[in-house]
Design a protein around this nucleic acid. Structure first.
Lengths: 134, 134
DNA sequence: GTTCCTGCAAAAGCTTTGCAGAAGA
DNA sequence: TCTTCTGCAAAGCTTTTGCAGGAAC
């Protein structure tokens, strides 16, 4: 499944599969709730008490560089990380703060003015109020 | 034009048109390049040497709350401000860092999973390399 | 007089950097 | 051995907060 295929990807790219990195990967695969660095760090620290936040930052940076994880920047105060790299949108509830995924068809988006631009990454996010908070 | 209609909007909402605020508004209207707080502060300080960054933050916060200005969060390290509040997308060149506008038709975007969500704000941004940097 | 606005200084919060020791190939 | 990885401490940045003086109505 996802976790296993990610491990293979890392091996293929000669990225060491250290215990810390495996735990972070596992956490992202199991918690697809777009966690912040602090959430990842705090939760994994329960099983690895010596874990450093720097390691979390380093690992996430590497995973993003390799294109295995995406950064979500909706608020300037926090980066969130998403192991689901397929095209999808994010909805942030301005009341509870939760982030919801929704499916989109990027190809359906009509946009003009990008001739000769090389596009690597497409992000769509909405803000509003979720049904539970309504 | 834009600057004048913005002034009217502020008056309507009982927001004092202080000298500092007018200069910030004028700057945003004339520099639709999605400036950061620091760019706004540095440039306006040339004509208002006593200007404080706090005032820039306060003013922008107010303008965003009133829906007259939008915040663009593409990178976690910087918030950018856009006085153009009509639907449009942003393209950030990963080489030169410039942000380009492009037109989009939000209504054309097919998305599922947002029944009963109240949407206030829609953002679309792409990342890649601009023609000049290619 | 009351409210709002400005600006300084300090604090807060997230992220990066430098570095030394440890682990892995 | 050489490279990579970890984790501590410190530094760097952006943004927020507290507060006093000033301006506006």
């Amino acid at each position: 499944m996802m976790f296993e295929s990610l491990k293979k990807e890392l091996k293929k790219r000669n990225i060491n599969l250290s215990y810390q990195r495996l735990k972070i990967l596992e956490y992202l695969a199991q918690n697809q709730c777009h966690p912040t660095v602090d959430q990842i760090y705090t939760d994994i620290q329960k099983s690895i008490p010596t874990l450093s936040k720097t390691t979390v930052y380093n690992t996430l940076k590497k995973l993003v560089e390799e294109g295995l994880v995406r950064v979500i920047n909706i608020e300037d105060t926090e980066s969130r990380y998403d192991i689901n790299i397929e095209d999808h949108g994010h909805f942030k509830c301005e009341n509870c703060g939760n982030i919801f995924d929704f499916s989109i068809n990027m190809d359906s988006l009509v946009c003009n003015g990008l001739d000769n631009f090389r596009i690597f990454d497409r992000h769509v996010y909405f803000k509003g109020i979720c049904p539970q908070c309504s």
